[in-house]
Design a protein around this nucleic acid. Sequence first.
DNA 1: CAAATTCTCTGACTATAATCAGAGAATAAG
DNA 2: CTTATTCTCTGATTATAGTCAGAGAATTTG
Lengths: 297, 297
Amino acid sequence: MDMPLVEQVRSFNRTMTERVGVLNDHFLGRNHPLGEARLLWEIGAEGASVRELRRRLSLDSAYVSRLLRSLEKQGLIVVKTSEHDGRVRLVQLTEAGLRERAELDHRADAFARSLLEPLGESQRVKLAAAMAQVERLLIASMVQITIADPTSQDARWCIEQYFSELGERFETGFDPTLGISAHPHELTPPDGLLLVARLREEPVGCGALKFHEDTVGELKRMWVAPRARGLGLGRRLLLALEDAARQAGITILHLETNHTLVEAIELYRHSGYQEVEAFNDEPYAHHWFEKRLTAPT
Amino acid sequence: MDMPLVEQVRSFNRTMTERVGVLNDHFLGRNHPLGEARLLWEIGAEGASVRELRRRLSLDSAYVSRLLRSLEKQGLIVVKTSEHDGRVRLVQLTEAGLRERAELDHRADAFARSLLEPLGESQRVKLAAAMAQVERLLIASMVQITIADPTSQDARWCIEQYFSELGERFETGFDPTLGISAHPHELTPPDGLLLVARLREEPVGCGALKFHEDTVGELKRMWVAPRARGLGLGRRLLLALEDAARQAGITILHLETNHTLVEAIELYRHSGYQEVEAFNDEPYAHHWFEKRLTAPT
DNA sequence: CAAATTCTCTGACTATAATCAGAGAATAAG
DNA sequence: CTTATTCTCTGATTATAGTCAGAGAATTTG
């Protein structure tokens, strides 16, 4: 990795630590310690369960409980037991809580304006664009790709989403039982594998491999959640799958795809996949691709 | 100010708060609480005085003292009294302190790498470029421009720097006593004014106005420190001076400049200044400019 | 339906990051 | 040469942020 890039990232981090410190002080500034303010914010206008809050802010349960008690005493929230599950407690903002939250909102706004205010119009636009770019790429770099059990909840969710998207996009709809099989056991080592991409623990994409004869592998279930598109995640999944295939001794990768999946077809073409004659009778496929893998490095 | 821009800044701040939190945890991670780590870092290889440290980190003197005591007890620093001033205490890292600091350095590096690592090469380059842009513009927005007393330390420093730069750039050198005067009292209300631009309390530029007859003003002492160039600061100073001139009822601004100051001449031309006949006999001037100001809004 | 798990809470405790008042020594200013 | 200021330190105290152990109630699992 190029050293100047690392230097730039470090310099950026220093600047951000300084500015974000200011941000937090301002955000807080108002009455509440940061913990309470964050919680107040996270509860939101619609309310939330205590366990939601704990999970979203990754805080200790004892700590959250105490913070809630404090907010309750200040009359900013009310807490009641869920009707569906007697263990779960639901938190809602009171009128005063909503006002307080609006105030925090206003402060965050004012802070953002104070950053833009000294700049000229063209600088403002450039700043916003560069911020969007940094954000997008940092978020991309937060995505983690790991091997998952196809029967796990996240894996099943991804595949479900994938099927439902195919159902919407294919002119004919999509019935998973008609196509080439990819049952859980076929996507589990040693017969294959499934990768799941996660952003902040939440699944945002998947991709699978089926190993055939000695050296032929088949790509299946390539999917990226709509909210995670444009992060280069498809390419990363593809590279990770190819790596895994190489590790397994695969030298030829096959895949077939439907003509409505234009982004995927683009990706395959750009990644060195050659269109070939149909090598199976997958009813939903219009294009068949193949890539010869080089030996693992 | 455009709302989407504010929204973008806020969204960016949220993302950064999340990431910087991670950064700090990692940075710290190692043995020391954040306060100690920051101090260890700030002392640097060359050492520093306690009052330097206090100023740079804007920490309470009691707090710094205690942190130093703790670092001292851990054998990471030695503190001794300054030879020049018996009140001042000098802090230096020991061998162990230097090792510890190198470790922090290494961790910051590793963190930066971990951000870049999941990205492809082109994404990395884009990220670094966007970070540089964000940093540059945020730093630009941190610069504050205020009216200053021409006899104040910061003002005198700026003007000194300005003169010394002119001395280097003019083929003939520069002797301030030969040119048109701009004595402190001429740059003090109601006869004129001096603006100083500061970044983190440090002066990084200046610009002055001399008020002549009823409605004519003269621009003097426009200077931006080398390290603050490329931030659009010259333009901001110019706009601020024009605003101040308008407030003072000025309708025509004059200025003269030397042909070696090409960036300044560019700036004047782009900001609506028209080149006119010489209106004075300033010996160092090659170009005379004039701008007609519209009424204050 | 017994056992395991989940969810929330209280009690007890700790570390960190401060802040304020003031003292003592050195130096600068008038 | 007296007075004011600067610099650092200690003592006393506080707020914030968080951890760990475990209890009690509700729910899920085998």
